[in-house]
Design a protein around this nucleic acid. Structure first.
Lengths: 189, 189
DNA sequence: GATTTTGTTTTACAAATTTCAATAGAAATA
DNA sequence: TATTTCTATTGAAATTTGTAAAACAAAATC
């Protein structure tokens, strides 16, 4: 629990009473790699803090084809967030790429935290704003950067990722085919 | 002021005391079409509710070239939101496409509202979540839809937009050249 | 350790998109 | 109204990217 409290205390101080209510709702979970946390069509019931691991958001295309909507890493929040917020079926799948430890809170418990604590909505706002900023950055990059630039960005921001996970996931995150990414990589070296 | 109160009351009830504090911070503004509200490199000082008008977020590319990061419409909030949240220089420009009426609140006044009202953070959270959902939808579309699908989506969601603004803006929103969009349109009919 | 599966790279070709250039139309301005 | 500027369309060439197939490499499984 230390990680998440540290993380939240970088946002704002939390009194013990509020913290106890919030943390009593958190469930520790462990998943092996390649676990599916949320399926397409399911309503997302949790938002989770990643204590350890890497998580991928996956959009199916044709049979056998898929796109990577996003990655999430240690000390970030993960959820099929659109589905979680709207409580409607998810259009992407949430799956682990590595062994993963989560601290999860359910939708209804989170609503209680919002209602019953002083700082719930403040933290909720700041987390939501942070997730907005990440998403906005990604949109920007998809719109103005070349695939090569997106690859290089990911390479500098997450050098470990490229070593640890299949390149085809990177390709589908960047928005090109694995063959195209292979050509891009060739040209860089 | 009726529009914005109606809008916010669809999110949550607001008591008069809170409302009076909030609304006392709002500034009415009017801009002719093609006004620049926020320039690249400036720190965004306002978030605004669009009472009337259409606003575009613009990213410069090369000289003479630009991309449309987003559009915003009546009864939506508009800002160089990334810059506003982080209070760092904006990487996109905010400009009006039509004559526009705004209700604006400054960054520092909004912080006061967050501190001094019961429901400030609740509304702030819900507005931020809404903006996240919009951005997420756009990212999804850029990643999985074809340019033709993005055009058709815009066409169904905002039929008036396509009649009222230059097509090259639509093209740069969709992520293709005006020539390509012209060919896409030709093929549809 | 051998076998099978999965992932990566390469090639040739096809398809889609951009670029460049020219033109016609629409809108803004003198 | 005439003139200028901006916008939209079209064609042809060039570039980029995707597709399909094959070869190879790496990883997982037996």
């Amino acid at each position: 629990m230390k990680n998440i409290r540290d993380y939240i205390e970088t946002i704002t101080k939390v009194n013990d009473e509020d913290w106890n209510l919030f943390s009593s709702k958190l469930h520790k979970k462990r998943f092996p790699k390649k676990s599916i946390l949320t399926k397409i069509g399911e309503v997302e019931n949790y938002i989770s803090f990643i204590e350890e691991g890497v998580v991928r958001l996956v959009i199916p295309k044709n049979d056998e084809d898929e796109m990577t909507f996003g990655f999430s890493f240690q000390n970030e929040f993960i959820s099929a967030y659109d589905s979680f917020l709207t409580q409607t079926p998810s259009i992407y799948q949430v799956e682990t790429l590595t062994e993963t430890r989560l601290l999860s809170i359910s939708y209804s418990d989170l609503q209680k935290v919002y209602e019953q604590t002083q700082i719930g909505n403040l933290i909720g706002r700041l987390v939501s704003e942070g997730l907005y900023l990440l998403k906005s950055k990604r949109t920007y990059s998809l719109l103005v950067d070349t695939a090569e630039q997106r690859y290089l960005n990911l390479f500098t921001e997450r050098p470990n990722l490229i070593k640890e996970i299949p390149l085809k996931y990177i390709a589908s995150y960047i928005g090109v085919t694995p063959q195209s990414l292979s050509r891009i990589r060739k040209q860089i070296t």
